[in-house]
């Protein structure tokens, strides 16, 4: 593909509405999905968003429908602010076990495209035990993604089932589901309310995954910053039990996109937590298609 034709040369394309990908937990890569959930920017003043909600309430629309419509619009805003044609960053993570002992890992993440039509490659760079391990994900809208895991020690790439969503990704507290790209339409939303704290004002939204998503979670609670339209906290429920929490920190606006440079995922059942830190974040950079091939997965980004 020529450079001129690459989407990376057309930054911040206006996203289509309806059926577009969300990243409910989008792409940290390590968790691409979580990463996308927590990045956002805003273009419209908040009042333009709040007006329809007020109008609907005055018009006597049933509160349940109002809450659902409002929540959907908020999540679409979150998704819209996070859009980019490509993203690259280096990440490091610390996995703390119940006793507080820590394991550190680092990786390079690249993603091209967005949501339902995207390609991503995560390559671990340390520790030596997992150096070179790579995960290639080719996401297709409406059909399961293709995923391969390459393990240098056995020199094999292995197609893995995308539905293995509850499986931990390389010993972290992130599951493969947490890393998958999602569509806005994959969830049913409801606006639970608004909360304020010293950290700011937030919408609290419940997101229930559609059955065809086969999610490990029964529902999620998501806190969206009312000013930035960035998800700053997520709670993951299995049945009615709180299973995990995800918190975002160190928000920075990079190339117009609000980006959480620090994430903390806690697994309440296991008593472990994973802290992710991102650096060298670049959006809308030209990334060759050759980076997202089995050849490159095996060859270790030569």
């Amino acid at each position: 593909m020529s450079k001129a034709s690459d989407p990376g040369e057309n930054p911040r394309q206006i996203p289509r509405r309806g059926g577009r990908p969300l990243c409910l937990l989008s792409a940290l890569c390590l968790p691409p999905s979580v990463f996308r959930l927590l990045i956002s920017s805003f273009r419209l003043p908040l009042s333009t968003f709040c007006l329809p909600l007020s109008v609907l309430l005055l018009a006597g629309v049933p509160p349940g429908s109002v809450r659902a419509q409002a929540a959907l619009e908020i999540m679409e805003r979150v998704d819209q602010q996070a859009r980019c044609s490509s993203r690259q960053y280096t990440g490091s993570l610390e996995v703390y076990d119940r006793g507080g002992k820590v394991l550190r890992k680092a990786w390079l993440s690249r993603r091209k495209g967005f949501g339902g039509e995207s390609r991503s490659l995560v390559r671990f760079t340390s520790p030596p035990e997992v150096r070179g391990v790579g995960l290639l994900v080719l996401a297709h809208r409406g059909v399961p993604s293709d995923q391969w895991l390459y393990t240098p020690a056995i020199r094999r790439d292995r197609r893995i089932a995308p539905q293995d969503r509850s499986v931990r990704f390389l010993g972290t507290d992130f599951s493969y589901e947490d890393m998958q790209e999602r569509e806005v339409a994959d969830y049913q939303y409801s606006l639970i309310g608004e909360e304020a704290s010293g950290a700011g004002s937030f919408f609290k939204i419940q997101a229930v995954p559609n059955k065809n998503l086969r999610s490990q979670y029964a529902y999620l609670y998501v806190w969206v910053d009312k000013n930035l339209f960035v998800v700053t906290r997520t709670e993951f429920y299995r049945d009615k039990e709180l299973s995990k929490t995800l918190a975002a920190g160190k928000l920075e606006r990079i190339q117009g996109i609000w980006t959480a440079l620090e994430l903390e995922m806690k697994d309440l059942k296991r008593g472990s937590r994973t802290v992710v830190r991102m650096s060298d974040v670049q959006y809308n950079k030209f990334l060759s298609d050759d980076l997202f091939t089995l050849r490159n997965l095996r060859d270790g980004d030569r």
Binding site: P144, R158, R159, I160, A161, Q163, R214
Partner: peptide, 9 residues
């Protein structure tokens, strides 16, 4: 051959 139907490898 490798294929991943219905969550199985």
């Amino acid at each position: 051959l490798a294929v991943t139907p219905a969550g199985l490898g």
